[in-house]
């Protein structure tokens, strides 16, 4: 199912004001309803390599699979939808490619990347993430964070050691507890949420949420929601105006209308004819 008419997507990425190169990587496949954002880490160029591999592997592999399968098809074995398995397998594939490259080439040793993947299908969005890159949702006037960071800070908040207010001033914002490409195996966190027409999804690297308050991000999306390209640029600009200490990347996805997956006799007929 082609989602070109259903989703509006705008992206923007910038090295920021301090760093000399951009270790973030973003990719969007509008027709398949897939967006991927990765924030690489590791010495010199390795971070870019890791995040670039993650986005490329996931987008190309998903494109191949989606050419022949629908995410809401049922698995023959366990009667569950194949979407989650499909995304998970591609994330694992990206993980092993990065891990192997890091193992075999000394200049890439220890590289890794955070990841957020969103797959839109059948009036739903499937979200897989690792590390501290985030997904936010603006629904009507409510702006909230959808993903929970895999970071030391978040674990400290969860276990009650520090409060969210203290977390804003905490020292070790940079320690993530899960990432792609660091270990031979990784388990991405995967959830599925229903979408509504009008929803505005924001994927961003920590360069945005560390520099700009959630409140200001929400306000910007509400004010500039009519012009996604401008909203994306404005968010990056706000991060840079506040110091821009890290690479900043944003992907905005607006759901324009309903997009139920075609089912029933007619759909089967079409699939069969193809």
């Amino acid at each position: 199912m082609d989602l070109t008419q259903t989703l509006e997507i705008a992206t923007c990425t910038d090295p920021g004001m301090v760093r000399s190169h951009n270790e973030d990587s973003i990719a969007a496949d509008q027709g398949n309803g897939l967006v991927v954002l990765a924030d690489g880490m590791g010495g010199y160029n390795a971070g870019e390599v890791a995040s670039g591999m993650a986005t490329t592997v996931i987008v190309t592999e998903m494109r191949q699979i989606l050419a022949s399968a629908r995410p809401y098809e049922l698995d023959q074995k366990n009667n569950q939808e194949i979407a989650a398995r499909m995304v998970r397998e591609q994330v694992l594939k990206a993980n092993s490619s990065i891990y192997q490259a890091a193992q075999s080439q000394p200049q890439y040793a220890g590289m890794g990347t955070t990841l957020v993947v969103c797959l839109f299908y059948d009036n739903r969005v499937l979200v897989a993430h690792l590390g501290d890159s985030r997904l936010y949702l603006l629904r009507e006037t409510k702006f909230r964070q959808v993903t929970r960071d895999h970071s030391l800070l978040q674990e400290q908040i969860d276990s009650g050691i520090i409060t969210p207010e203290q977390a804003k001033k905490a020292a070790h914002k940079n320690l993530v507890t899960k990432a792609l490409g660091i270990d031979p195996m990784v388990e991405p966190e995967i959830h599925e949420y229903p979408t509504k027409p009008g929803d505005l999804y924001l994927l961003c690297s920590d360069g945005l949420c560390d520099m700009v308050d959630d409140e200001d991000i929400g306000m910007t999306l509400q004010a500039l929601g009519g012009n996604l390209k401008l909203a994306a640029q404005q968010l990056v600009q706000m991060a840079n105006d506040n110091g821009g200490r890290d690479n900043v990347s944003v992907i905005l996805v607006r759901v324009l209308r309903e997009y139920p997956g075609p089912r029933g006799v007619m759909a089967k007929m079409f699939a069969w004819l193809k």
């Binding site: 924030d39 880490m41 890794g112 955070t114 501290d132 940079n174 320690l175 993530v176 507890t177």
Partner: peptide
């Protein structure tokens, strides 16, 4: 001050 993201 602003350290790069690292994995724990």
């Amino acid at each position: 001050d602003f350290e790069k993201t690292m994995v724990l």
